[in-house]
Design a protein around this nucleic acid. Structure first.
Length: 479
RNA sequence: GGUCCCAUCGUCUAGAGGCCUAGGACGCGGCCCUCUCAAGGCUGCAACACGGGUUCGAAUCCCGUUGGGAUCACCA
């Protein structure tokens, strides 16, 4: 019976862009499904119509897809257990709520918000934990009819029985609860829509979800949900609760800490591969100690019960390092495709695709973010500004090196990188022997003249990409 | 505040009673390489929150303390 097919789901609510924490939850579900040969479904939890929006939904789709976390079933691709959007399932929930009423597991509640607020206030005043008073538990049929005749629409509450509830969490181990501490909670709102806890259970049941992997902020929902499963007579899935991702100040990761949405990270020039790899390492560790791994490699090595049960802090240093690693090793054509949107302030038509790739190739090395390319490639597209290197250009070395370099560069074979390399080496030797200039100084003068910078891409490549005309033009302006 | 979860270098973590003089990665310092930044190689600094047990033996098991987090809605 525990051998049934693994089916997991990710159920974001479209009330914001896809959060990096949600992305990690999605990833862990995806990894678990991959590892076990199970299915991974996407369900949109948009029961709160006011806070949900189409734009957020689209952002969630796009972000998940960009990360490569593609779902087997979902709102767009369909599947045997649809629809996969809760707002399209509103007709389903009342039936189950009614069933629960009929079986005595739930009852109608006519309390107004004001009544409930008052109960809360009193509980707070007495400093006792709030529990619904059960005022409406024993209403007679006549009383209910009377209330309904007045136009009061009831909500439906689940009748919670006090008992000890134990379940085995996939990552936390045995978890115990005293359900006597939980009050009777609403499963249907008076407007006829389901509450979160009810919709989740009904949907997970109907969608045959076998394992629920989610953030530990849901731990306290779990007993309520188990109670509903039991009342519904449905098999209870296995639960696994992941630690949270915290900001460096140990508070919830929020906008004031920087990017929180996957799409924000992408905009800043993080690679989705790096993002995924990094976030996997928050809680999971590779068995061979090699941290840089693609999703398939991670999936093969993934064991849900080995995931760390503590919270982890999201630090940018390692993410940045990892992003740099991915940038350095990514296929250059793919990287160029990703880089081009970041460079739209430049006239990219100055160069062929091949040359563009070359530019990216020689500037990718020191960067951590794709947007760093903007500054690092600037001198390929625009006239250099020389304020940074004024001193060098006015110096004795430059005065001697630049004229000689200019006259020599005329003879360089620009189609032959090796030729440029050798000629530059000769030049360094020449100035060292005849003027006592350090190789570094010679190169500095040339680099400054050509790029306006003291650091940057490989000089040989830079000279070649710029081309003979441009190199000479830039030199002439300075001599 | 009630309930629940968590606790190894600054950070992510390895560690399932002896393999631990606690390992790796990021970051930080040093050296090497080098036309610069970077990368790479080598190397250094840095942790079992505290207190009690259990045991021949505890980072690992138990209890307490402290600290952090989550949650207490007709929001998801």
């Amino acid at each position: 019976m525990s051998e049934e097919k693994v089916r997991v789901r990710i159920a974001p609510s479209p009330s914001g862009n896809l959060h990096i924490g949600t992305a990690r939850t999605a990833l862990f579900n995806y990894l678990f499904a991959k590892k076990t040969g199970g299915e991974y479904v996407l369900r949109i939890e948009d029961t709160d119509l006011d806070r949900s929006s189409e734009a957020y939904k689209q952002n969630i789709f796009d972000s998940l897809k960009a990360l490569g976390l593609n779902w087997d079933e979902g709102p767009d691709v369909g599947g045997p257990y649809g629809p996969y959007k809760q707002s399209e399932r509103f007709d389903i929930y009342p039936k189950y709520a009614q069933m629960l009423i009929d079986k005595g597991y739930a009852y109608e509640c006519f309390c107004s918000n004001e009544d409930l607020d008052e109960e809360h206030r009193i509980a707070e005043e007495k400093k006792i934990p709030y529990k619904y008073s059960r005022k409406c538990l024993n209403l007679t049929k006549e009383q209910k009819d009377e209330l309904k005749a007045k136009g009061i629409k009831p909500s439906i509450r689940f009748k919670v029985e006090a008992k000890e509830l134990i379940f085995n969490d996939l990552v936390k181990g045995e978890l115990k609860f005293d359900t006597g501490l939980i009050g009777d909670f609403a499963i249907m709102k008076s407007n006829g829509t389901p509450t979160y806890n009810f919709a989740v259970v009904v949907d997970d049941m109907l969608m045959k979800i076998s394992h629920v992997i989610r953030g530990e902020d849901h731990i306290s929902n779990t007993p309520k949900q188990i109670l509903i499963y039991e009342a519904l007579g449905a098999p209870i899935p296995k639960f696994g609760h992941l630690g949270m991702i915290l900001a460096p100040d140990r508070s919830k990761l929020s906008k004031r800490h920087g990017a929180t949405a996957v799409s924000d990270f992408i905009k800043e020039g993080y690679l989705t591969e790096a993002l995924l790899n990094f976030v996997a390492l928050l809680g999971w560790a590779p068995s061979d100690g090699v941290e840089i791994k693609n999703v398939d490699e991670i999936a093969a090595d993934f064991r849900i019960n080995e995931v760390s049960s503590s919270n982890s802090i999201f630090e940018y240093e390692k993410l940045n390092w990892m992003n740099g690693q991915y940038i350095k090793h990514m296929d250059i054509s793919k990287l160029t495709d990703l880089a081009i949107p970041f460079l739209n302030m430049y006239d990219l038509n100055k160069y062929s695709r091949k040359q563009l790739e070359h530019i990216i190739e020689v500037t990718r090395e020191p960067i951590t973010l794709l947007k760093d390319l903007v500054y690092d490639t600037q001198y390929f597209f625009e006239e250099p500004k020389y304020n940074e290197v004024e001193e060098i250009l006015k110096g004795d070395v430059a005065k001697v090196v630049l004229p000689k370099f200019k006259s020599e560069v005329e003879t360089y074979d620009f189609n032959n990188e090796e030729n440029i390399h050798d000629k530059l080496a000769e030049l360094r030797t020449y100035f060292k022997e005849n003027h006592g200039f350090k190789p570094k100084e010679t190169m500095w003068a040339i680099r400054s003249a050509l790029t306006g910078r003291t650091r940057g891409a490989d000089m040989v490549a830079t000279i070649q990409i710029l081309g003979k005309d441009e190199v000479i033009k830039r030199l002439e302006k300075l001599i």
